[in-house]
Design a protein around this nucleic acid. Structure first.
Lengths: 117, 117, 117, 117
DNA sequence: GTGGTCTAGACCACG
DNA sequence: GTGGTCTAGACCACT
């Protein structure tokens, strides 16, 4: 389902948020598609339900998904949330790019690094 | 002096390292220039001297500064430092680039943003 | 028919009650007008008939509508309903007013907002 | 400290958020003033630390307070968060006021209700 | 000692 | 069965 690495430095819930964000942004999870239940994800990942719940609630807060109590969680049909996320991601990207240039790294090097992701 | 945000999520010593690194990279701190004493920085920031000390040690370990016992710390004049500088800048650049891609931003868009800096 | 948002945090039956109450209060549903059958509303909203039934029962209990077994539900022609209507509207008004005050908005500001409706 | 009612219908963490919001908005909690530690509040209220933590994190997310790991939580020095809260509170107030008027309640009655809060 | 994360459960309202 | 809330604890990094 949502593969994560339990010992990955960053908190599990954060990895989940990132992974699901990714799946939504590339269209692997369609609008209004139902997400697997909290408990199921928890069981499959060998993680506590609370941890998954936290991830889902964060995603809902960002507007990427919406939860209907006693029904399930679904991918949000509006693009607002995703666009807001992309805006802030682009800003932080630009800032770190500026910093790299300020350190004397050539833009060409950055483009190369970009392509090798 | 070194303005940092106490409420920055990331540890203070890390912010200090990043900030001083930045100042050196843009030339605000010249080669062989003396850095302010640990205690003074600590007092001005309202932070434990140990925290500042930790930052200075990390910077020395990276070759960005060097310490003369009983005299103070100075910006390194060799080029060792610069490499460490660029390495960390490149890492943070790559990370934010990965994040942007995970949010569904196309690499082409990032290249465009890169060229318009 | 009765447009509601499935993803609205509050229970579906509650939204239904609120919406129908609103329609009656503004005269969109006339006195003694027949309400659509439970099953039909349920089908159109993609909701369980029990949920709609619950809403209708609550409305009947408030005196806003009355049910004729084997015939259907109708908007109440007496004035009992209106009072219930106004009561609930006043309650929700008071609650949001309290909340606004709790957020530090002065009562004078609220009165001003009230007059400019 | 922060008096709440454990059996108050609304979740404990929500009551806490509301109460602290109130204290900040009326100036009972000054800018940059330190909030009592999560564990302490939990002990005094006879509530689990997680519950208090949830409230603090929500407040931080709203920009009303900021948390420094291993140091404590403090009232935010900027007014951004509070202003955003007040904006949305005012909007929901206006909406329910409109609804009440649509139900046939006179504005004078609403003003009276407002003054008796 | 502090905030942040997490586990292993539990109960509730709702559909 | 579902999401939402909560308890009673635990470990970690950091100050």
């Amino acid at each position: 389902m949502f593969s994560i690495s339990i010992r990955g430095g960053s908190p599990v819930y954060e990895q989940l948020v990132k992974r699901i964000t990714e799946l939504i942004s590339i269209g692997a999870l369609q609008k209004d598609e139902k997400l697997p239940p909290v408990r199921e994800v928890a069981k499959q990942l060998g993680v506590n339900p609370n941890t998954v719940q936290k991830a889902y609630q964060l995603l809902e807060h960002q507007g990427l998904i919406y939860s209907v109590p006693a029904k399930g969680s679904y991918v949000s049909s509006s693009d607002e949330g995703l666009e807001a996320l992309q805006r802030s991601a682009l800003i932080s990207f630009t800032q770190s790019a500026k910093n790299a240039v300020a350190c004397g790294i050539k833009k060409e090097t950055l483009v190369l690094a970009l392509n090798s992701i």
